[in-house]
Design a protein around this nucleic acid. Sequence first.
DNA 1: GTTCCTGCAAAAGCTTTGCAGAAGA
DNA 2: TCTTCTGCAAAGCTTTTGCAGGAAC
Lengths: 143, 143
Amino acid sequence: MNPSFEEIKQELKKRNISLSYHRLKVLEYLTQNRCHPTVERIFTSLQREIPTLSKTTVYNTLRILVESGLVRVITIEDNETRYDIDVRNHGHFKCGSCGTIFDFHIDIDSLVPVELDQFRINDKNVYFKGICSGCLSNSNEND
Amino acid sequence: MNPSFEEIKQELKKRNISLSYHRLKVLEYLTQNRCHPTVERIFTSLQREIPTLSKTTVYNTLRILVESGLVRVITIEDNETRYDIDVRNHGHFKCGSCGTIFDFHIDIDSLVPVELDQFRINDKNVYFKGICSGCLSNSNEND
DNA sequence: GTTCCTGCAAAAGCTTTGCAGAAGA
DNA sequence: TCTTCTGCAAAGCTTTTGCAGGAAC
């Protein structure tokens, strides 16, 4: 099961990372909006609730969460960094039409290339690109 | 086998992309330096031979090559875009210590997640991060 | 009192764009 | 001549850094 907001708070306490209001809000946003948001999106959404929020704080918070291993960076496009609260091994599919990123299950651990026998692997990432079923059927309708 | 410089030139001709001197030099660099170079690295290396070369031209050329499907963008770190002349499906391992990117063979096509049944997949990417065997044995020596 | 969190402004990097001159067909 | 390739400079964006005020303990 995905980690809940409460579970993540416990994890932060364990690591002696103080739970400031802003940080909790960023965390809450990530647990409730599992759309792999960008900094921009997190910032814009939270700004409604916290008018004084600065983007620097969002960057700072995300950096801390990533360093502590509770959040994972998703690098698919070189010009947009996204963040994922789900750090378990899974794949990402990005639709080139609507931009949505879909999660999919994949057994990455069964893939152990012989070339990497003597390497220490810390992190495994899989991402696909293409067109999602929704966009495919939309374009069929318009034909 | 990897495509050779000559084979790639043929491909460009097929697509009616003119083979200017600068473009050929970028292509040649990519076929001879399969280290997944950044724009900076390509530019700096070629500048020795072509003093008037501008980074804009390197960017332009790479964009054309990527659009034509002859070169592939490797996005592993969000702050460094790298380019690979080998567009076949294979994985990349980036060493966090020395920064080298290693290729490895991986049978990505055997991985067809059920969630993506109705999706059109255009592009599959796998990358791992960790420490390569060379850096591992260096750090052991220093212990 | 000390630590560290926050936010503004500036800086830093990378990439794209506009435009004019040069090269090529 | 007409197209397009090239390169400078400027602009655009995202992310980082420096620093000072403020909150928390």
